[in-house]
Design a protein around this nucleic acid. Structure first.
Length: 259
DNA sequence: ATGACAATCAGAGATTGA
């Protein structure tokens, strides 16, 4: 089973780039972030024609997440537990039924800038709720993963110019401490479990030719429970997608599982 | 030190992103 995450930066603006990549990469499951659309505005037919089941959790203008799956989806839930008053569409999860069932969570973690301020407070509070959800998934002892745009640069080697991010919410010590606390519950970060090389990024700014200079950051991640990590056979970043026509500023990251 | 770039909603330019 091939599962991908891709922050598409707007579904309306990314239909061509997204469908081109789907046709080429043929993931069984694609977790999308920043659809920037309400559920009714999501062009689900385009994906259904390609054999995907479509589940969305959208909102007007910003944020929004979705799951595309060629396999059946069961027990779909929307919203990260822990704050009934949170109206931002950043979390969707479902059970994907292949050779075996995998619980799959798609997430768009808050950016958190500027620091300090209410947006940074919201990011850290959201990460505390994420930690609680991670604990519950681990306690289930089932194969499960949480993937998406974490808006976290885990280590200096995950940025071309880490010094430029020192005071940014993506790299602040509070953010990275919260990330480590979640990983250290016993989760496996898929990409670094298989590849320790620097220079591998998943986001490049649109400005100043960042992609051509490989001035990027790695902020799109998979975290897996041990039962899921045992099934992993590969993890790659489709960096070339950033060089395509009208690209998102993020690129797809994917894992393959024996499932 | 600043802006550069893109998307959305709206129908100009503010807001958001990272």
């Amino acid at each position: 089973m091939k599962i991908a995450t891709f922050n598409i930066n707007g579904i309306k603006a990314r239909i061509q780039a997204l469908t081109d990549w789907l046709d080429e990469a043929a993931p069984d499951v694609a977790l999308l972030q920043e659809i920037k659309s309400v559920d009714e505005g999501f062009p689900r037919e385009i994906f259904e024609e390609r054999g995907y089941n479509v589940e969305t959790h959208g909102q007007k203008g910003f944020n929004g997440v979705a799951i595309l799956s060629k396999l059946p989806l069961e027990d779909v839930t929307r919203g990260l537990p822990g704050d009934q008053g949170d109206e931002q569409a950043r979390w969707i999860e479902a059970t994907v039924v292949g050779d075996r069932a995998i619980r799959i969570c798609g997430l768009y973690l808050p950016n958190g800038n500027p620091v300090p301020g209410p947006k940074f407070d919201y990011k850290l509070a959201w990460m505390a709720r994420l930690e609680a959800r991670a604990r519950a998934l681990l306690e289930s002892e089932e194969p499960a993963l949480m993937a998406g745009d974490y808006n976290i640069i885990p280590q200096p080697e995950d940025a071309a110019r880490p010094e430029a991010w020192a005071e940014d919410a993506l790299f602040r010590i509070e953010s990275r401490t919260a990330w480590r606390r979640i990983v250290n519950l016993g989760l496996t970060e898929a990409f670094r479990a298989r590849n320790q090389a620097p220079g591998n990024y998943s986001f490049w700014d649109y400005q100043a030719g960042a992609y051509n200079r490989n001035d990027g950051i790695r902020i799109d991640h998979f975290l897996m429970t041990p039962e899921c990590a045992d099934l992993m056979t590969d993890c790659q970043i489709d960096a070339h997608v950033r060089g395509g026509e009208k690209p998102s500023d993020h690129v797809p990251v994917w894992v393959t599982l024996e499932a």
